[in-house]
Amino acid sequence: MFQPIGSPKAPVTVHFDGVPITACPGETVASCLLRNGITRFRTTPVSGAARMPFCMIGHCFECLVEIKGLGSQQACLTVVVEGMNIATQAGAARVAGVGHD
């Protein structure tokens, strides 16, 4: 869906839903997931529909993901860090340590 412009820098590794994926140092979580072809960042709390970043500048909150166990993090404003654990946010955000089920 998206393709790099020019030659990429030495990558770092992050995890998305437990799967290792490569990211460019300094890029945002949103850009990293899009680079890896991921179109489902979260599902909505109301209908369960899939959502992907829409505005990329922190206004729309469509890119919400779980980062390091904390829900409702804006992927478009968070920069990747080596080894970062990112997960799809299913429905409403979970409070750390409290499950939905």
Partner: peptide
């Protein structure tokens, strides 16, 4: 604007 952001800060097209 989102696509421009991806071009500028992520070098993605």
């Amino acid at each position: 604007g989102a696509v421009q952001t991806l071009i500028k800060s992520s070098r993605l097209k």
